[in-house]
Amino acid sequence: MTAETRGSRARQIAAQAVELTKVYGSGESAVRALDGVTIDLYAGQFTAVMGPSGSGKSTLMHCMAALDKPTSGHALINDTELASLRDNALTQLRREQVGFVFQAFNLVPSLTAEENICLPLSLSGKKPDPQWFDQVIDSVGLRDRLKHRPSQLSGGQQQRVACARALMSKPAIVFADEPTGNLDSTSGAEVLGFLRRSVDEFGQTVVMVTHDAVAASYCDRVVFMADGRLVDETVNPTRESVLQHMSELQEAAMNAPAVGQAGA
């Protein structure tokens, strides 16, 4: 893929958040995890959402991925308003339009790697396209591990199985929540490399929540969050540029006396 095609896709929006607010609890103890976030996630891009713990990055992802309901505002996937869907429709949307990679516990222990990869498809009673299946399996390098159970796989292999599963239904968007959080750097690099390739070679849209600057450097675009708001953004990041942004944000937070509760 060339930069040009990537650019033309960039105008197409895969998922969108408009004035998203999420409040946990009520009254005095209410916590505003999201405080009016508006963002467009472009198709064919690898976007990272960064921010310190408690900045609301995971909440943003959960709300955009139809895992959680926002208190107010809109979340759209492929121009579909999530709030308008009932549980069954949401389930179907998650199954067909969204891929997930979680930090841990990604796989059903009683199913083999192959069954896990095909799980969303088999839940809709579909068979994977064999060509696409082969392509994905070779890309994650799991061909010889397909009959293994999760307990027989290393952490990195498990995450790659999860990535393969996320891609198998050719979703509109893949949400990855700290996919490398539990991995050593080599395994982490493999997973990130695969996500990068899925964007470059298959045109997949990927959003990843992370607080690792190295992970963010694999992305096309990095958005920064603090206290439930989007505070900054950078494109074509490097590890250094990400760290630079982060330390600036840190300083800004220290200088703002009102906000002190966000931990590191």
Binding site: L67, D87, N88, T91, Q92, R94, R95, E96, F100, F102, F105, N106, L107, V108, P109, L119, P120, L123, S124, R165
Partner: peptide
């Protein structure tokens, strides 16, 4: 968590 995962990847309530 497994049930959560299954729900996330598209297992309906029913």
């Amino acid at each position: 968590r497994e049930i959560g995962l299954l729900r996330a990847v598209g297992l309906s309530r029913a």
